[in-house]
Amino acid sequence: MATQKELTRRRANRVRRSLKAVANGRPRLSVHRSSKNIYAQVIDDAEGRTLAAASTLDASLRTSLKTGADVGAASAVGKLLAERAREAGVTDVVFDRGAFIYHGRIKAVAEAAREGGLNF
């Protein structure tokens, strides 16, 4: 019987595999959430390096947020990531939700990144 950790890893790999098929060379906007924080990064899979990253642990966000685990914090991370990605010259990405459903904090990051100028 598969453990919960194995099932989560399978779901994330399934999502990532389908994204790589349609990416057409675009970088991947990967989102991870924990119970206390949210992390997002733009990854170039061809070169294997991170182009831009943001999280609720960043010094610029940490002081202005009440907590790192709500929709408001996720929106702030999405806006900051979009700004940093545009500075790195990235405008088109594919959204990698990982093993998380597109709801709540994950959706807030995606919508804020779109408002910040990223296309996906």
Score class of each variant (00 low, 15 high):
74 A>C: 06
65 L>C: 00
77 V>R: 06
89 G>H: 10
1 M>A: 13
60 S>V: 14
96 D>P: 05
4 Q>E: 13
34 S>N: 05
75 S>K: 15
97 R>E: 10
14 R>D: 12
12 A>K: 15
50 T>I: 05
106 I>C: 03
49 R>V: 12
32 H>P: 00
44 D>V: 06
38 I>P: 05
86 R>N: 14
33 R>D: 01
16 R>T: 02
86 R>L: 15
111 E>R: 10
108 A>T: 05
75 S>P: 02
59 A>L: 15
53 A>R: 13
42 V>L: 03
99 A>E: 13
29 L>R: 06
72 G>P: 00
109 V>G: 02
103 H>I: 04
97 R>G: 08
14 R>T: 02
53 A>V: 12
3 T>P: 05
33 R>H: 01
13 N>E: 15
29 L>Q: 04
100 F>C: 01
26 R>L: 07
30 S>Q: 10
72 G>N: 01
28 R>G: 08
65 L>T: 04
31 V>H: 05
15 V>W: 07
44 D>S: 05
68 G>P: 00
88 A>Y: 06
112 A>V: 07
85 A>C: 06
23 A>T: 03
50 T>Q: 06
4 Q>T: 12
90 V>G: 08
76 A>K: 14
111 E>M: 06
69 A>D: 12
97 R>V: 09
27 P>C: 07
23 A>S: 14
84 R>A: 05
23 A>W: 03
55 S>N: 11
46 A>K: 14
105 R>W: 07
89 G>A: 09
22 V>S: 14
107 K>C: 00
44 D>C: 08
18 S>L: 13
113 A>C: 08
11 R>I: 11
58 D>E: 15
94 V>P: 00
42 V>G: 01
84 R>G: 00
58 D>L: 14
3 T>Y: 08
39 Y>N: 06
82 A>M: 07
11 R>S: 11
29 L>P: 01
100 F>Q: 09
72 G>M: 01
40 A>Q: 12
106 I>G: 00
16 R>F: 07
71 V>Y: 03
68 G>D: 06
104 G>C: 02
70 D>S: 08
83 E>K: 15
57 L>A: 10
102 Y>G: 07
118 L>M: 01
52 A>C: 10
68 G>C: 03
93 V>C: 03
108 A>D: 03
34 S>H: 07
4 Q>V: 13
113 A>H: 11
5 K>S: 13
17 R>Y: 02
3 T>R: 11
26 R>T: 01
89 G>T: 09
72 G>T: 04
7 L>H: 08
56 T>F: 11
62 R>M: 09
97 R>A: 11
63 T>S: 14
56 T>D: 10
44 D>P: 02
79 K>Q: 15
9 R>P: 01
30 S>M: 00
29 L>C: 04
77 V>T: 11
41 Q>V: 07
97 R>N: 09
64 S>W: 05
22 V>W: 08
43 I>V: 13
24 N>P: 02
54 A>N: 07
83 E>M: 13
21 A>D: 11
81 L>N: 12
60 S>D: 15
109 V>L: 12
81 L>R: 12
68 G>F: 01
